[in-house]
Structure formats: structure tokens, C-alpha cells
């Protein structure tokens, strides 16, 4: 009788243990399956605003890539036609050379744009933030106090001085940018908002602005062609 009771107790304990293990396993299995699904879709963790902004940016980028593809396709057709007629198309190569020199800041340019006057102490990161925003808004050529600026131009603060390409910028900072006025205007307004509490800012729109300063290219010392 006593041994039967002990056996029942032992069976009960086994049942409880097995049940607990079953519960734990079931819970873990579901958590694991659902976690894998989450990892598989990194976008799923993002809020709708982020996704909407991402869609907007991707649409913009894809439109630019379509335009780039169309330009290159036209360039390639011209080259092929010139070659098939037995000649060469120096004009197409010249056009590409001019575009690249312009992008690299090596030739004077003009076009519609903005001039932003900033009076007050500007830090290096503040100027970089403004330039970054204007580049994002399709800014194509920049100069700061008559020094041509590209993305690789060093901009650093040393004490109270701001150095742009090694040149000290004193007094009023004058930033010229050429690009799509429709995009540059709102981007500039937004970019300088945080500065306006302590810096006096004037933004002038221009239908035809000239940036005549150029960058002197530095030869590669460390970098070599190829991967």
C-alpha cells in the first residue's frame, strides 16, 4: 500500500516536471520562430515615418540614376557613331573632362544659387553640417570666403579660428553655392535654423552666381590604382 502511494507520488512529480519542460520548450520554440522572422526583415522594426522618408529618398536617388543612365547612354551612342564612321569623338571626351573638372572644383563655374552670409562664431562642424545639407539638396559647387570648397576640403576649428583649406576665415563667413534654387532655398533655411540664435544670417538668392576660385589638385602619394 505504502509502495503504491510512493509510486503515485513519483508519477505525479514526473508529470509535473515533464509538463514544465513542455511549457518551457513550447514558449522558447515560438519565441525563436518569431525572432527569426524579425531578424529576416530589418525594415519591420522601423516606424512608418522612417520608411516613408526612406521611400522618398530612394525615389529621388533612382530618378537621378535614371538621368545619369540616360546621359551615359547618349554619350556612348555618340562615341559609337563617331567610331563607326571611322573617326573619334574628342568632343564627347572633352564634355566628360569638363564635367569631372567641375565636380572636382578645378574650373570656374557659374549658375543659379545662393549666397549665405554668417556673422558670428561658426565652428567647423556647423559649417560642415550646412555644406552637407546643401550637397544633399543638389548643391553642385561651393566657395567659402572666396576659397573653393569640395567635400575633401579640410575644415577645422583651431581655438577661435576657423580654417577652410588651411585659410583662416575671419569676420563674416560668405558661403556661395550653385545648384537647383528650388531645393537649395528650403535646405539653406533649415540648415541655418539652429545657428540663428547666436549667428546673424542673411541668405540671398541669385539667378546667376559665379564661383571663380578653383582647387589645386594634390597628386596621390599613398594611394595606388586598383583594389
Amino acid at each position: 500500500m505504502r509502495s503504491q502511494s510512493a509510486e503515485q507520488t513519483a508519477r505525479g512529480q514526473r508529470l509535473i516536471i515533464v509538463s514544465l519542460i513542455g511549457i518551457a520548450l513550447g514558449f522558447l520554440l515560438v519565441l525563436q520562430l518569431r525572432s527569426q522572422a524579425t531578424v529576416a526583415a530589418t525594415l519591420a522594426a522601423q516606424d512608418d515615418t522612417s520608411i516613408a522618408l526612406l521611400i522618398n529618398d530612394l525615389n529621388k536617388a533612382n530618378n537621378q540614376l535614371l538621368q545619369q543612365g540616360a546621359d551615359l547612354s547618349q554619350q556612348e551612342t555618340q562615341l559609337r557613331q563617331a567610331l563607326s564612321s571611322g573617326g573619334s569623338d574628342a568632343q564627347a571626351i572633352q564634355k566628360e573632362l569638363t564635367t569631372l573638372q567641375l565636380v572636382n572644383g578645378e574650373i570656374p563655374v557659374h549658375g543659379p544659387g545662393l549666397t549665405i552670409h554668417m556673422q558670428g562664431g561658426i565652428m567647423d562642424f556647423e559649417l560642415q553640417d550646412v555644406l552637407n545639407s546643401l550637397r544633399q539638396a543638389s548643391g553642385e559647387a561651393f566657395s567659402v570666403n572666396s576659397y573653393r570648397v569640395t567635400s575633401s576640403t579640410p575644415i577645422i576649428s583651431k581655438g577661435n579660428s576657423l580654417l577652410v583649406g588651411g585659410h583662416s576665415i575671419g569676420g563674416t563667413l560668405v558661403l556661395d553655392v550653385i545648384g537647383d534654387p528650388e531645393q537649395l532655398g528650403p535646405a539653406a533655411d533649415l540648415a541655418v535654423t539652429s545657428l540663428q540664435t547666436r549667428v546673424q544670417i542673411v541668405i540671398q538668392r541669385s539667378a546667376d552666381l559665379a564661383i571663380t576660385e578653383v582647387v589645386t589638385p594634390h597628386p596621390l602619394i599613398y594611394g595606388q590604382l586598383g583594389r
Binding site: 545619369q68 563655374v109 557659374h110 543659379p112 545648384g179
Partner: peptide, 12 residues
Amino acid sequence: DSTFLVKYAQPV
């Protein structure tokens, strides 16, 4: 991995 689109700046 792309190229440059210059639409507004023109050489002087």
C-alpha cells in the same frame, strides 16, 4: 558606384 549629374553649374 555611380556617376555625377551636373545640371546647374556651367563652366565660365
